[in-house]
């Protein structure tokens, strides 16, 4: 082969380029984005909990604040992200070892259906107390 000498450059934009792509790619994009979001949230979550060191007054003020609508909606979104990442992740453990990988597309939709069902119920549980 006497071919060109051009050396290509790493292009991570391909991770988020779903044009012409199919279900497996969408699952990957979702998994990557939700994973990074959850890691960012873990840092925030741990940092915010430092108010526990301040005793009851600080913490209970925080909790009252966090029981307000914007934060409850944030919790609902958090549960959605957790469910998508977690249930797609269960699929990946099995698919990643070759179990059912020729049905990976169907497993993805099954995981998302399960996520949607749990999400509907937990959304009700989170928002119901704020209703009254």
């Amino acid at each position: 082969m006497s071919e060109g000498e051009a050396r290509r450059r790493p292009d991570w934009r391909a991770w988020f380029a779903p044009r012409g792509r199919r279900t497996g790619m969408w699952a990957f994009v979702l998994n990557r984005i939700t994973g990074l979001l959850l890691l960012a949230y873990v840092f925030v979550h741990l940092a915010v909990l430092s108010v526990l060191f301040q005793g009851p007054a600080g913490y209970d003020r925080l909790v009252r604040w966090m029981s307000s609508w914007p934060f409850l909606l944030f919790d609902v979104a958090l549960v959605a992200v957790l469910l998508v990442h977690g249930l797609n992740g269960v699929r990946l453990v099995f698919v990643g070892l070759g179990a059912g990988s020729h049905r990976q597309r169907e497993w993805f939709w099954a995981a998302m259906a399960a996520a949607a069902a749990v999400f509907a119920y937990t959304t009700y549980l989170i928002l119901a107390p704020a209703w009254r």
Binding site: L52, G55, P56, Y59, D60, V63, M66, S67, D75, V79, L82, G86, L87, G89, V90, L92, V93, G96, T122, L125, I126, A128, P129, A130
Partner: peptide
């Protein structure tokens, strides 16, 4: 990574149940 992933599905579920769903609303300091 796979093992902790599966474990987290269970542990996060417990964590959420205790913090959000065991009582109506969030937990107090006590």
């Amino acid at each position: 990574q796979a093992f902790t992933g599966l474990l987290l599905v269970v542990l996060v579920a417990l964590h959420m149940v205790a913090n959000h769903f065991a009582k109506r609303g969030l937990l107090t300091y006590r």
